[in-house]
């Protein structure tokens, strides 16, 4: 294999994984817009949805039933998260309350998953394509599964953009994000929009779980937390609250990770990502596309 081909393959793999990171970052953005809350239990949501779908599959249900079923449950969890773990805590001036409670709910899902499905890794079946299916583009062998993930992640993000920018509900969401009281005066049910944003965010977590699981091949109750932190890195790289940033940050992180993995050591992949998180937060917490917030006295 030529060195160029090797590099291109790394970049391609990085883009695929990165697209999923973008989806996760997008999930943070949506709740951040409406409530300035970032769900620290997002990771276990990702894990839990893929676990649910896997267990439905193992019960013999087809994909077409398992996935909607998994999504419905995860959306319901998003609703529960907002009502019980966030809304009562938004009245406090500091974020410590909701950080701790969202994290708590996430860890609860993680513990619940180990209780139900055990702590060991479970094999997740490939989706539509077989793990061995390849597509050849410009002489590079690309995994069909990876390609599918990339395309789906991009399509979903495009869809989200359209919904938010072109539909009245999307505009209402932006309105609530900008000024919830003014939105109420305009007749928009701000609280409902906030709840809705958590349900959509949970759905995005579920989608990310279903997409990443076949790439990983196996899933464990812990994998959500790890991948969530990578989602943080993606979101922070691009700037929290920015859709463009989420896309860019995710893809960039994916590529960096895979290049580090390919040329330095696979075991350093995640370590590098965490290092990027700390450095970006320290140097440029608004990321590359974020909006600087003026401090209020």
């Amino acid at each position: 294999m030529s060195s160029l081909q090797f590099a291109l393959e790394l970049i391609f793999t990085g883009l695929c994984v990165g697209a999923v990171y973008s989806l996760i970052a997008h999930g943070f953005n949506i709740t951040f817009w409406t409530t300035k809350v970032v769900n620290f239990g997002h990771g276990p949501f990702i894990m839990f949805c893929s676990m649910l779908v896997l267990s439905f599959l193992m019960k013999g249900l087809p994909w077409i039933v398992s996935i909607p079923l998994g999504f419905s449950i995860i959306i319901l969890l998003g609703y529960i998260l907002e009502r019980f773990s966030i809304r009562p805590l938004l009245k406090y001036p500091t974020s410590m309350g909701w950080i701790v409670s969202t994290l708590g709910l996430g860890l609860f899902l993680q513990a619940l998953a180990s209780k139900i499905w055990g702590a060991q890794a479970l094999a997740f079946p490939p989706f539509i394509f077989q793990a061995t299916d390849y597509v050849s583009i410009f002489g590079i062998q690309l995994s069909a599964q990876y390609l599918l993930v990339l395309v789906m992640a991009l399509v979903i993000m495009l869809l989200m953009e359209v919904i938010i920018n072109k539909t009245i509900w999307g505009k209402a969401m932006k309105a609530v994000a900008f000024d919830p009281n003014f939105a109420r005066v305009m007749g928009i049910k701000s609280k409902m929009v906030m709840t809705l944003s958590f349900m959509i965010s949970a759905l995005l977590a579920g989608v990310a779980g279903i997409l990443i699981a076949p790439i990983y091949g196996t899933i464990t109750p812990e994998f959500g937390m790890n991948i969530m932190v990578l989602g943080f890195v993606a979101a922070v790289l691009g700037g929290i609250g920015s859709s463009k940033g989420a896309l860019f940050g995710g893809l960039m992180l994916g590529v960096i990770e895979k290049l580090v993995g390919g040329y330095i050591s696979t075991s350093a992949e995640h370590g590098v990502a965490f290092l990027i998180l700390i450095i970006i937060l320290a140097l440029k917490p608004d990321g590359f596309f974020g909006v600087k917030v003026v401090q209020k006295v």
Binding site: V38, F40, T94, S95, I99, N226, V229, F232, V233, V236, H270, G271, F274, L275, L277, I278, L281, A282, P285
Partner: peptide, 16 residues
Amino acid sequence: VKEFYLAMMTLGFGFI
């Protein structure tokens, strides 16, 4: 950094 940015950073520090 403050608030949830700090939470993310310390989480990352723990992982590193």
